[in-house]
Simulated assay, not measured.
Amino acid sequence: MNIGETLKFIRKNKKQTQREISKGYLDRTTYSRIENDERSVRINDLQGVLNKMSVNVHEFFTFAKFDLEQQQFKELFDACKEQPEHERLKKQLLTYYKKLAAKPTKNLREHSNQLAIKNYFHHYWKEIPEINASDSEMVYRVLAKKNYYFQYDYILLANMIPYFSEQQASILIKRAIPIKDEEQRDEITKNNAFNALLNLIHVRIYEGEWLIVKKYVKLAKRQPGFLKSYKHRLDLYYFDSLFTYLLTKDPKALEKTQLFIKVTEDIGDKNKADAMKEEVALLSQNLGENAAAKAVNRKPTNLIKEG
């Protein structure tokens, strides 16, 4: 729904009249034109109308979709993640991917969508190629020029950070974290910023880069917004305990790691919990083979990916 449709939808469900909603801010005729998309609405007037409706602005914008195409992409992407073998869904996403791949020039959103598809679905579908060096260099050049990141910048960073060198990743994380004006950012933007940091920690664990892991774990723990999210906090402390176990072989650290896996399973994310169990078994085996300090030639199994 657009702004006018959303205002009408909320007003009718609250059983309020146009006159009641517009009183004190707009005349009823002007408000009627806004609901019918015959006139734009000023920010101050919109805030006043929402106050009359007792509707939070964030709730309002969950109904009002300005970018229907992107919303449709996200829904299709998520559906394919849930059912990668579903032929109709797969065909739809492949058609969209091929359309993007054929475009000679793409905006940041289109680059983000194309690389999100490559990053996730090349594991499942032979039609989707892996991320290559050209992809990672292009994204690095784009992000390295920026000092202020917006939503699609963070989505690109979250998906592509496993493919950057440590020097490149360090440069970009310094631009991305702490999130500038964090209190004014939407949840999707913040989630992707934190996911970028978690993905970087995850990759460095597999590479056995313990000092670097420790540095990024400390950075994450210094972010107040990061620790407010139980999901991000759970992932962070899982990585922290796993890294501590691999470094020290302390059985208490292993017990703590297994506890975080159990919590993940108990809250209903069984697929992720199974991937975590597989991960601990793999890395423990490498530790037993005296290879924990060496790079493991396998990508992490439960990277946090965004579409």
Rank of each mutant, 00 (worst) to 15 (best):
I3L: 15
I3W: 05
G4M: 05
K12M: 13
K14Y: 10
K14W: 09
Q18T: 03
E20N: 13
E20H: 13
I21H: 10
I21T: 15
I21P: 11
I21W: 10
K23F: 03
R28D: 07
R28H: 06
T29D: 04
Y31H: 11
Y31M: 06
Y31Q: 08
S40M: 09
I43K: 14
N44F: 04
N44L: 09
N44M: 04
S54G: 12
N56T: 09
V57H: 06
F60T: 07
F61A: 01
F61W: 12
A64L: 08
F66L: 13
D67S: 11
E69S: 13
Q70G: 07
K74W: 01
K74F: 01
E75D: 07
L76E: 04
D78C: 09
A79C: 08
C80Q: 13
E82G: 05
E85I: 08
H86Y: 08
K91R: 14
Y96N: 05
Y97A: 15
Y97T: 08
K98W: 00
K99Q: 10
T105A: 12
T105G: 06
K106H: 07
E110G: 13
S112A: 14
Q114E: 12
A116S: 15
I117H: 10
N132H: 12
A133V: 01
A133G: 10
D135I: 06
M138L: 10
Y140E: 00
L143A: 05
A144P: 09
A144I: 10
K145V: 04
K146P: 03
D153E: 06
I155Y: 01
N159Q: 11
Y163N: 14
E166W: 00
S170F: 03
I171T: 15
I171Y: 10
L172W: 01
I179T: 12
R185S: 01
D186M: 07
I188V: 13
K190D: 00
N191E: 03
N191M: 12
A193H: 03
A193P: 11
F194E: 05
L198K: 11
N199Q: 14
I201S: 00
V203S: 03
Y206S: 05
E207M: 11
G208W: 01
K215Q: 11
V217I: 15
K218C: 02
R222P: 02
Q223P: 09
L227V: 04
L227I: 05
K231I: 09
H232D: 00
L234I: 08
L234T: 14
L236R: 09
L242D: 02
Y245I: 03
L247V: 01
L247F: 01
T248C: 05
K249H: 10
D250P: 05
E255V: 02
K256G: 00
F260D: 04
V263Q: 11
K270N: 13
K270M: 08
A275R: 14
E279I: 09
V280W: 00
L282N: 09
N290L: 12
A291K: 14
K294C: 05
K294N: 11
V296W: 12
N297G: 00
P300C: 08
P300I: 02
N302W: 11
